[in-house]
Amino acid sequence: MSDRDVAVVTGGGRGIGRAISLKLARAGWDVVIGYLSDVDSATSVADEIQTLGGRALCIQVDTVDERSVEAFFAAAEQFGTVTGVVNNAGAATAVGRLEDNDLADIRHDIDVNLFGVIACCKHAQATLARSGGGAIVNISSAAATLGSPGSYVQYAAAKAGVDALTVGLSKELAPSIRVNAVSPGTIWTQFHRDPDRPAKVAETVPMGRAGEADEIAGAVAWLLSSEASYVTGANLRVAGGLGRHATGDRAIGDPLRRHGHSGYAETGVCRSSPADHRAVRPSSCTTEQRPHESKVTSGAIRPAPRPAPAVPARPRGGAGLRHVLGRHPQLVPRTRPAGRS
């Protein structure tokens, strides 16, 4: 058994999970890589960790099966002293409008993205407690605050549940176990059905690009480190500056929305091809304008005028003072008793 602490990473063989596993190994951790079916990817990560001088163990786990989760953490404890847990495993099977998806697929996504995190947190508690404490990092999503309309609202809802779980559990387990979350925006991984989607949505991100998996891994590694020893209940948003509600100039000028896409580009799945984007010109766009919204005219964004707020008439002179004092008798000045300062 090594003197290095052990970090457990679910979904640690691909995408963001792979980057997290390798980042933690470089930071001095031994890593338990949880995978569901892609053993080759998990083994590849383990081999790379060993070339870095660390130890790695690949364990198959189904995060929605409690017996599988329990066995997973038991095996991790046999591997070493577990002081870090990253709940990264996720799924987006049901894509598109809610009404167009099968409930079985929707339930599967909610199970993996929320129940799976809950199950892992439940069994991670006992493992970390036996190690003398530690930290949990839940991988959420910027979708949790955007809703992902037209793309996968159930995924966004599950991730919002992860956010609430993180806050509540951080209070429940303090001070021995810290619980935090990281909320990625659009990241270059194989998670997307459209492999070019990160490039297509780059214009909607204030940073002007999609993120890299290593940038998420850096945030996770910091939250697990002693440098974050006073951080718990936090949700670190790593989304290139895209806000919680997707408002502002970039959201108004989002080319994907102008071209008829119903979802916010950060978390939705873009179903059009690059040719579609070339074929549609912003000047041909028509929008339904609501009060105080901007309108599109010949490709330019112009703010709609706001009506001037109504200013109620105020009584003048002594009548105004009598009016105020009549409504608020406590403001009527009283005679100060003699001899008091």
Rank of each mutant, 00 (worst) to 15 (best):
G34S: 14
E99H: 06
G90Q: 07
R67A: 13
D62R: 10
V64L: 13
G90T: 07
V31I: 11
V86S: 02
D65K: 09
F79S: 11
D47R: 09
R26K: 15
N87V: 01
E70C: 08
V95W: 00
Q60D: 11
V95P: 01
A74S: 15
V86F: 02
D62H: 11
T81G: 10
Q50W: 09
L36D: 13
Q78W: 08
E99A: 10
T51A: 15
A76W: 05
A19I: 01
V85L: 11
F79Y: 12
S41W: 09
D100S: 15
G34F: 03
A74I: 14
T43E: 08
S37A: 15
G28K: 07
A56W: 00
D38T: 12
A92F: 02
I16Q: 03
V95C: 11
G54N: 10
T81Y: 08
G96P: 01
F73E: 00
L36H: 12
F73N: 01
V86P: 00
A46C: 11
G84V: 03
T51M: 11
R14C: 07
S44F: 05
C58N: 11
E66G: 12
E99G: 07
A91P: 01
R18I: 04
V86E: 00
I33P: 00
A46K: 00
N87Q: 10
R18L: 09
G90R: 02
A94Q: 06
V69Q: 09
S44G: 14
I20W: 00
G90K: 01
Y35Q: 08
Q50A: 15
R14K: 10
I49W: 02
D62M: 07
I33W: 02
V39A: 15
T43I: 06
Q60G: 13
R14A: 04
R26N: 09
V61D: 03
V69I: 12
G34M: 05
A76D: 08
R18M: 13
N88K: 03
G54A: 14
V39N: 14
R55K: 14
S68L: 08
S41H: 12
L24G: 00
W29C: 05
I33Y: 04
T51N: 15
V31E: 00
A91M: 08
L52Q: 15
F79A: 15
V95D: 01
D40R: 12
A71F: 13
N88R: 03
T43V: 07
D62F: 07
A74M: 14
C58M: 14
V32Q: 03
D30M: 03
V32D: 01
Y35T: 05
A75P: 12
L98P: 02
E70N: 10
A25L: 06
L57D: 05
G54M: 11
D62T: 13
A76I: 08
G90V: 01
V85Y: 03
T93R: 15
L52V: 09
G15T: 07
A92S: 04
L24R: 00
T63F: 05
L36A: 13
